[in-house]
Write a protein that binds this DNA or RNA. Sequence first.
DNA 1: AGCGCTATTGGACAGTTGCGCAATAGGTGT
DNA 2: ACACCTATTGCGCAACTGTCCAATAGCGCT
Lengths: 202, 202
Amino acid sequence: MSPEERREAIVDAALAVARRKGLAATTVRDVATEMGTSSGLIHHYFNSMDEVLAAAFERVARDDLEQTEVLLQEIGDPQELIRAFLASYAPVGDDWAFQLWLDAWAEAARRPVLREASSRLNLAWAALLERAIRAGVADGTFHCDDPTAAAWRILSVIDGLALQVVAHRTILDRADMLAWAATAAERELALPPGGLRVAPPQ
Amino acid sequence: MSPEERREAIVDAALAVARRKGLAATTVRDVATEMGTSSGLIHHYFNSMDEVLAAAFERVARDDLEQTEVLLQEIGDPQELIRAFLASYAPVGDDWAFQLWLDAWAEAARRPVLREASSRLNLAWAALLERAIRAGVADGTFHCDDPTAAAWRILSVIDGLALQVVAHRTILDRADMLAWAATAAERELALPPGGLRVAPPQ
DNA sequence: AGCGCTATTGGACAGTTGCGCAATAGGTGT
DNA sequence: ACACCTATTGCGCAACTGTCCAATAGCGCT
């Protein structure tokens, strides 16, 4: 197994454990057992457990981001682009990726490497949304004084609503979350009500 | 010391430690040392450390809520009321209470007792805000089609922005967070821009 | 075949954790 | 003064943590 493959395998195993027990409760020995190897091997490829967890989180978050970037590149119409962004960012089906974000945000205070990764990726998501907004403002579809602020507000309202759905399960409806996030985005971009309605998941 | 006082004292001590080290890193021995007693005493009043931590979280969240409820009762003007709500909810000064919420949200998925508490308190915060909105709509200060949705959106945008400030430290400015949350609320309630501007913390 | 290098092992280490338990102190009611 | 009861002690237990390291296995090159 090549060094690169081994690192990937470790990250895979760490994610499998984190999915079950949570990022904060994932230990070196858990990961080793999951891989079927010894625990010492992990420290041969990573300097600290903090790095393993950061790499695991980063993999999920970055994959999602890149996937969304590709998706958005194929869309020309700014309005359709924001709609796709909403549908893609909001947790649908499996909440697991969003639970990882929750874990990362909470652990960021205690794990510097994880904080750096989470911070960087969150910033990248905001930047992606901001670019989409600027494109729409440039061609006159949207009206918005401060695209940076608008991007952070839209992102935040989705994060806040999704958080309620994932953490508290029954407190909010999934369909409500999507509809409400769309409404917030419509206001930010001066679109008519319903202009960003996202089809509810079947 | 009566049993009830002792339980309170334990929760107090747990919070003092959690403020320094975080809720997740608070141990039985820490709490005992903080109180100046033995560690065995804690298990005489609580069945498990989990219960201590859940009680500690609940105390902070509930106290904050009740304090805000009292504060808002003394305010008649709806606009001033929302302004006070924003200033009171958003983390100002130390981030400690909000970090507690982050920990609770992340752990909610895996700890039913904590999820119940966090869920109940979050719902109460939303209901408090919704009542304030309805009061403003009734006297014509605000215009808003769906006060429930508006309350959740305002709450969510504050949560989402505060999360960035607390978890990532430098990614967003505190003043930006407050100003942006105020802007979002102004839009939701059809107030003129600047109508909810909150004085930045000195 | 033999050399060298790295992947991998498995356990040691020093620390920590939550929890339980026998012993004791201290106060209350009789 | 005595008995009773609970609050409180302080230590021990077993399990777990991240990290490190000497020993070994095994593959690839000469």
